[in-house]
Every structure is written in C-alpha cells, then in structure tokens.
Design a protein around this nucleic acid. Structure first.
Length: 251
DNA sequence: GCGACAG
DNA sequence: ATCTTGTCGC
C-alpha cells in the first residue's frame, strides 16, 4: 500500500510547532469530507476469509518505558492462510484521548500497512471508522491517507445509539448504530452496526457484539458483511485476531 | 459544572 | 492499551 494523501498524515507535530488539539479535530473534519462511506472497491461480493480476494488486518500493542511506543502488526489473509506479515514501531505521539486515537497510533499503523507488498481488497482496522464524533475514527483516517477500503472493528461503542437492544443477539445478527447528537452526521444516520460474530447457545453466558463501521470506500452494510465473512469461530474476525496475536508477540 | 468516551 | 488468578460454564 502506498501513501495517497500526505496532508492527512496523523502527525502530532506540524510545520515546526506542535499540532494543537483543535488542529487535530479540524483535520478530522477535512478527513470526513474526503471519506467515502459507500462501496467503492472491486468485488464487494465474495468477501471474507473463506474465499475471494485477500483481506488485511492491523492491530497494536504498546511498549512502555520512558516514552511509549506503538507496535503495529499487519497481516494479509487469504482463505485460511496468512500470506504475509509486516510490522512497524513508532513513538506514540500523544496519550490516549477518546476521539483522537489516530494521532496516537496512526503513524505506526500506516507504516505497517505500507510495509505490506500484497494488495488486500479491504483492510480491517481495530477501532472505529465512521462511529466517531467527527466521523473520522482510526479506520477512516488510515483509509483516507492510503485511499484504500477500510473497515473499523471495535470491541466497545465510542458514540452513536443502537437502534434496539444489543443484548443476547444470535450469531450473525446485526443492529444498526445511528448517529445522535454526539455525532456530526444527521440524527438517525446509520453509521455502523453492532455485529454478533459469535454467541453461546444457552442463556447463562453471553458474548458482546463487535461494533463495525465504515472506514473508507465501504458502506455500513458491506462493512458488517465483510466482518461476518471473515469470522471463523471467534469473536474477532480472523484478520483482526491474527494481527492482535502478532502485535502481542512483537511487544 | 456534569457527563462520556475506540485503544 | 495494560496490570493479573482464579473461576464459572460449556
């Protein structure tokens, strides 16, 4: 993958000085304008880890010490095989701030993805995409910077409102996440889906859904389809699960 | 001021 | 994200 929009790099420092929080938010508004929350890639059908084109997954771990470093691991999966792995380590620009995650981990993610020589049809990024206050979560930031299809996969909901309860959903079920007053999109806009990738049979123990949202060049419905297509018996889709394990090892 | 918040 | 043992349930 190659960098497509240098102006959207999630750098913490601007020309000479340091990027302020307001400037980071401003960049996110510009990113959202550039983002395409509709299907715009080859073969949107036949997606998934079971057949069709390769899908990439990226996830991060952190090395602590005098200064924090983000370790990003990217994996390219095709069918049931990992066909390529890449990684990168970058200084964490800022501490964790809800809504500004891409400025903390983005540099490492972009470096890891750029190190992949293969071309995935779509890339699964850990975190939110359009489910974000300014519709510019990590998945959207990365997708626009590289101008590649991306999907955000988060384990918890940053903002927005589930259309109905997400408790006890069956495997394969999904509930729309709508924009509310905390999101820039018009109220009611479907910005993502709670997707139940796995669920236990009996009523005692239950698994929470993953929150899927469009990053770039993918619609909300297709994003959910891609995640279900890449699921193989675990809560997290394979590309994400494998990247998660890889990042943990590299830590 | 209060609340709320991916990784 | 990370710190951490056991424990409940299938």
């Amino acid at each position: 993958m190659e960098l497509a929009c240098p102006r959207f790099l999630p750098t913490t420092d601007g020309p000479g000085r340091s990027r302020s929080r307001a400037e980071m938010k401003r960049l996110q508004h510009e990113l959202a304008e550039e983002a395409v929350f509709a299907d715009d890639f080859e073969a949107p059908e036949a997606l998934g880890t079971h057949s069709g084109p390769p899908v990439a997954g990226v996830d991060q771990a952190f090395r602590t010490g005098d200064s924090e470093a983000a370790v990003s691991a990217a994996v390219l999966v095709r069918g049931e095989r990992v066909v390529e792995r890449a990684s990168a380590v970058r200084e964490a620009g800022i501490p964790y701030i809800p809504g500004l995650l891409s400025f903390r981990e983005g540099e490492a993610v972009l470096a890891a993805l750029r190190a992949l020589s293969g071309e995935p049809a779509v890339t699964l990024v850990d975190g939110s995409g359009r489910v974000h206050f300014r519709e510019a979560g990590l998945a959207t930031h990365v997708g626009v910077a590289l101008d590649v299809p991306t999907v955000g996969v988060a384990k918890s909901l940053l903002c927005g409102q589930p259309r109905r309860s997400v408790e006890g959903l069956e495997t394969g079920e999904r509930v729309a996440i709508e924009a509310d007053g905390d999101v820039t999109a018009p109220d009611g806009t479907v910005i993502g889906y709670a997707v139940q990738t796995r669920q236990f049979d009996s009523p005692n123990r239950h698994i929470n859904p993953v929150y899927v949202s469009p990053g770039h060049r993918v619609s909300a419905a297709t994003a959910a389809d891609v995640v279900l297509g890449c699921t193989a018996g675990y809560k997290l889709p394979e590309p994400t699960r494998l990247a998660d394990a890889a990042a943990a090892d590299l830590r």
